[in-house]
């Protein structure tokens, strides 16, 4: 029986409790001096990998966290290792050259080959781009089975059962390793990083690599033309009485 070699790709994004602002030139969201943290769906992925190890229904040989992003992405890799990843790989990609989902999927394909992973757990989407494509593209490139939006995962030997929430109920899928799983909000509740584990994480291995190390180069297929904030809601008005309301409705053409 083979052991699990889990790869958990994670992304550094603007903290989801922070309100993002569009820059003046309307080309991107402002990121300087804005609080960043791990994409919340990715926290679920790393937590689930650690829980699979704790449940030990199929032994976990290794959990590798991976991120492609600016130098600061190291912070979230350290967090992932404090939560329970054994080591991590950081492909340095500057913020201005951020990869597209297909680029990420191709990179991950190489990493999977290199690390001999047999299970990839990743967030169903990142909350900054909201593309929600990487997991599916990766499964396609690897020609592996995939289960998206997982709300429950159990693994017995080679056989994997995933429950996913769909419109109108839940769907339970069963397949065999290797596979790709994308995580949804109800999968688990990520633990806090404890101080002893934060300290241990400092000593864990963090490998720095480049796209070239994987034989890849930037190949952007999309161009961002414009970024705008959603229109601000207009405040309501108070009317004095029923007549006032009727005339206001008429004025607005609702009557």
């Amino acid at each position: 029986m083979s052991k699990l070699r889990i790869l958990v790709p994670i992304k550094r994004v603007i903290d989801y409790a922070t309100k993002p602002h569009v820059n003046r030139t309307q080309t991107a969201v402002m990121t300087a001096n804005v609080k960043h943290s791990m994409n919340p769906f990715d926290e679920l992925s790393i937590e689930e990998a650690v829980r699979l190890r704790e449940r030990n229904t199929t032994p976990v040989e290794e959990i590798v966290a991976f991120s492609a992003g600016p130098p600061k992405a190291q912070d979230i890799l350290r967090t992932a290792m404090a939560i329970g990843a054994d080591r991590s790989i950081h492909v340095v990609v500057e913020e201005k050259d951020a990869l597209e989902p297909l680029g990420v999927a191709k990179l991950l394909q190489k990493v999977v080959d290199e690390q001999k992973s047999n299970l990839v757990i990743l967030g169903k989407q990142s909350i900054d781009d909201d593309a929600g494509q990487t997991g599916q593209m990766l499964a396609g490139l690897l020609n592996w089975a995939q289960a998206t939006q997982a709300s429950k995962v159990s693994i017995e030997g080679e056989s994997v059962t995933v429950t996913r929430e769909v419109d109108g109920g839940v769907e339970t899928l069963k397949t065999k390793l290797p596979m790709v799983i994308t995580t949804d909000l109800r999968l688990n509740e990520p633990r806090y990083a404890s101080l002893p584990n934060i300290m241990k994480a400092k000593k864990k291995k963090l490998e720095k690599k480049t796209l070239a190390d994987y034989g890849l180069a930037e190949n952007l297929k999309l161009k961002t033309i414009k970024v705008t904030e959603p229109p601000t809601r207009k405040g309501g008005v108070k009317v004095e009485d029923v007549d006032g309301m009727i005339s206001k409705l008429k004025e607005l053409g609702a009557l």
């Binding site: 903290d15 989801y16 409790a17 922070t18 609080k35 943290s37 791990m38 919340p40 967090t79 806090y192 990083a193 404890s194 101080l195 002893p196 934060i198 300290m199």
Partner: peptide
């Protein structure tokens, strides 16, 4: 600070918030 209070056993256990929600 965290390392020193953990090592000197002043603090028995602890967590550090990783994001705004925590």
């Amino acid at each position: 600070f965290l390392e020193s209070v953990m090592e000197s056993s002043i603090v028995s256990d602890g967590v550090l918030a990783q994001d705004q929600t925590q």
